[in-house]
Design a protein around this nucleic acid. Structure first.
Lengths: 170, 170
DNA sequence: CACCGCATGTAACGTGTTACATGATTCA
DNA sequence: TGAATCATGTAACACGTTACATGCGGTG
């Protein structure tokens, strides 16, 4: 997952690790905070596999940079990944769903949890709205944020469904 | 994640590993196929942590069963997990979103991918509908399936948004 | 005989996460 | 002096996935 986003970012333009972290997080609207170490381990692995190659760029006063660029194999790998659609509903593997379902499994009322969850989702929705208003937002990032918002709205709808279902049983 | 669903299933009723796999998959409507080995490693780990305890039940003709039940600590751990709502939009960490976003990042048109993805989603939606019609469906499972369907619909909407956005740029 | 169902398990791998370590410069 | 920024990296952990191994009994 991460590797492919990195490949995508490098496909647009060669970059070094420290920079990649920032661009990556910006691209995802800050919804995927990344530990810098992860970037370096991923990059060295990609290099071993021949998908990227790096060039050391010395700087005076500042530490050297290792600027990575895609190889042809890397571009091919990226395209192969990006060309395949993803299988549908893996989404149930999700704490949000499972907590409520497990609750009603054991008979306990998930009412409190539903309310807490709704509040959580609403504030997340607001937060995403704020992110969307940021200047210099990459159009692709805007799309991502919109996707996340649509899902949150779907989840809110689901919470309503859960509540209705509860009323029927009670 | 898995561990908590197992705890939830055991809270409803003590069970042995082999049985748990079946119940687990049924509970999730078959959307999370589980390798049996995983169940046993998870169970032994839970036992080490004192969250479950097991009792060996010998059978004639068939291999012994190790029937697991929740301990008080296990019940507490389960409740602790189930009481906390989940943070909002981690959902962007998702190949479905990223493939299309990465595409438009490098300038390539994601039109083909969007169409393939839409077809994939529609067939997944149909499949979920089929699962919902199954007899003896646990109400909680019905809820889960509905949640998955709502998300799929949201994702389909997003694909439309992506297409519209493309037209604007072209 | 071969295969399937029941029932248990181990070993290794992939990927994301966290914490920690190094070393130079700039700024308060 | 102490902290923040730039820039690189290692080690260990968590969790899910896969493949493989074992052993017995019933069925075709």
């Amino acid at each position: 997952m991460l590797r492919f986003v990195l490949l995508g970012l490098l496909d647009a333009e060669p970059r070094y690790g420290y920079e990649l972290k920032a661009v990556f997080e910006q691209f995802l609207g800050g919804t995927w905070p990344l530990n810098i170490g992860q970037v370096y381990t991923a990059l060295t692995k990609l290099e071993k596999e021949g998908l990227v190659e790096c060039q050391v760029v010395p700087q005076d006063l500042l530490p050297d940079r290792k600027v990575y660029a895609l190889t042809d194999a890397g571009r091919a790998e990226l395209r192969k990944w990006a060309d395949e659609p993803d299988s549908g509903p893996v989404s149930l593997r999700d704490a949000f769903f499972l907590k409520i379902a497990v609750r009603s499994l054991t008979g306990e009322s998930p009412r409190d949890l539903i309310n807490k969850q709704r509040a959580e989702h609403l504030s997340a929705l607001a937060e995403l709205g704020r992110l969307q208003d940021e200047p210099n937002l990459h159009p692709a990032t805007g799309l991502l944020l919109e996707g996340a918002m649509l899902r949150l709205e779907a989840d809110l709808k689901w919470l309503d469904v859960c509540e209705d279902r509860l009323k029927d049983t009670t």
